[in-house]
Amino acid sequence: MSTIRANSPAAYWLAAPAALWMLAAVVVPTLLLVWVSFWGGRAFSTASPLTFDNYLRFFSNQAYLGLVAATFGQALLLMAITGTLGYCIAYFMTMKVSNARWRTALFLAFIIPFWTSTLIRAIAWVPFLGVNGVINQALIGLGLTTKPVEAFLYSMTGVTMAQVSLYTMLAAGPVVYMLTSIQPALREAAMTLKATPFTVWRRITFPLTLPGVVIGQVLVFLNVMSDFATVATIGGNKHALLGNLVLNFYEGSQIRFAAVVAVLLMVCMLAGVALALRVVDIRKLGT
């Protein structure tokens, strides 16, 4: 017995506002994008004839295909870096820090930036990366180089550096959640049976945290695939990923092409999520 009966009509009334909100503002617009991407003609109207021309024009352009590959490459790179880094950090904070106060302090230092503006945090990298930036000043000061390295600002290296600082939290968070829900008895049993620490990790800890790793990877994948703000802030106008292409077409009033790129982006992301869901079942997480 609780304040709500199972299957009572009240539940439907409580769920309706949120469900309608999400349907109207997320599901319908997404379906609309798919429809618009098939529009022919020039006018922005629902009477437009349907055609594959927009897609054909996209796929016949080598530069755009290169951009798809570059976006995937960037996502995979970030997944590898933040996955490794995030796992190390999550493992250290939950398993190696025994002092509760220190652990809370580390957690806070780790997650507080998540509550501040991503945009500002991306901009904060700009004074670091320029030709006269902090990194170059440090390199010259240490005598490691005599000429400033120009590879940071307005380059994908700089974008990657900033994205690592923005997205590692996403990769680590779910792992922390899974690590804290492992019963200590499981690991102790293995250790009593003389398994080496590495074997304990490989055979017990890692398989149990795998769902967390996959969820984290999905979050990083989705965020990097659709990230255009970091690329625009640090990459300047010289570099672009699929997200920037959507924006460029949109600002150039080429709505149909923007929709095509958006749909392709969506398909890529859905494929990634579907692949991940074959590895773990998200719904089993709570239990």
Partner: peptide
């Protein structure tokens, strides 16, 4: 349906909603 709000990237939802 609710989780979709986190999963769907801002650029797609924003663009679609604007249309």
């Amino acid at each position: 349906l609710l989780l979709l709000g986190i999963m769907a990237p801002g650029i797609l939802v924003g663009f679609g909603f604007a249309l």
